[in-house]
């Protein structure tokens, strides 16, 4: 993807690459707290079924993943591991912060051991609010991320504001 990173590809080719990236997002299976169960419901349950959106939820290693869902409370003890897993993912990579705890600390806003927001340690693309968010909200976040990927220009990728699911 080196050429794409430089923004040197002609428009139609970039579009083709974007469409293929959009429909083959590999989500790293990464559960932290309560939200992991709702994420499991969105990914593994027949009612929500994320695979129809082209999201494949079972890579065994972060090195095969494009997207990571930070689902739950990040504690100060866990934060280095989160950072390390994020760094192991290959570019281009996306992060969905799921739930109030990962967004800003949530109900543990005054706790001594909780990192108040995962955006302190890794950049976040989509914020999904809720405690925990319903599986539909996570799916909405994924759909919004896919829309952004479809119209993505690699040169100004890092200058964009994060999406907030409302």
């Amino acid at each position: 993807m080196g050429l794409v990173e430089n923004g040197k590809l002609p428009g139609p080719l970039t579009k083709l690459l974007n469409i293929s990236r959009k429909y083959s997002l590999w989500v790293y299976q990464w559960g932290l707290a309560c939200c992991a169960i709702e994420m499991g419901a969105a990914f593994a349950s027949p009612r929500y079924d994320v695979m129809r959106l082209g999201v494949i939820p079972f890579p065994a290693s972060p090195r095969q993943a494009d997207l990571v869902v930070i689902s739950g409370t990040v504690t100060d003890k866990m934060a280095p591991a989160v950072r390390r897993l994020y760094e192991q993912m290959p570019e281009p990579k996306y992060v969905i912060s799921m739930g109030s705890c990962a967004n800003c600390g949530g109900p543990y806003w005054d706790s001594y051991s909780v990192t108040k927001g995962v955006d302190q340690i890794i950049p976040v693309d989509v914020y999904v609010p809720g405690c925990p968010p319903r599986p539909e909200a996570l799916l909405e976040g994924i759909v919004l991320l896919q829309e952004r990927i479809a119209s993505e220009d690699m040169t100004d990728r890092w200058n964009r504001d994060p999406i907030v699911v409302t």
Partner: peptide
């Protein structure tokens, strides 16, 4: 243990 320690017993005091 402790990767999910959120300090409940302290938080309940406030």
């Amino acid at each position: 243990m402790g990767y999910m320690h959120r300090g409940y017993e302290k938080l309940t005091e406030v």
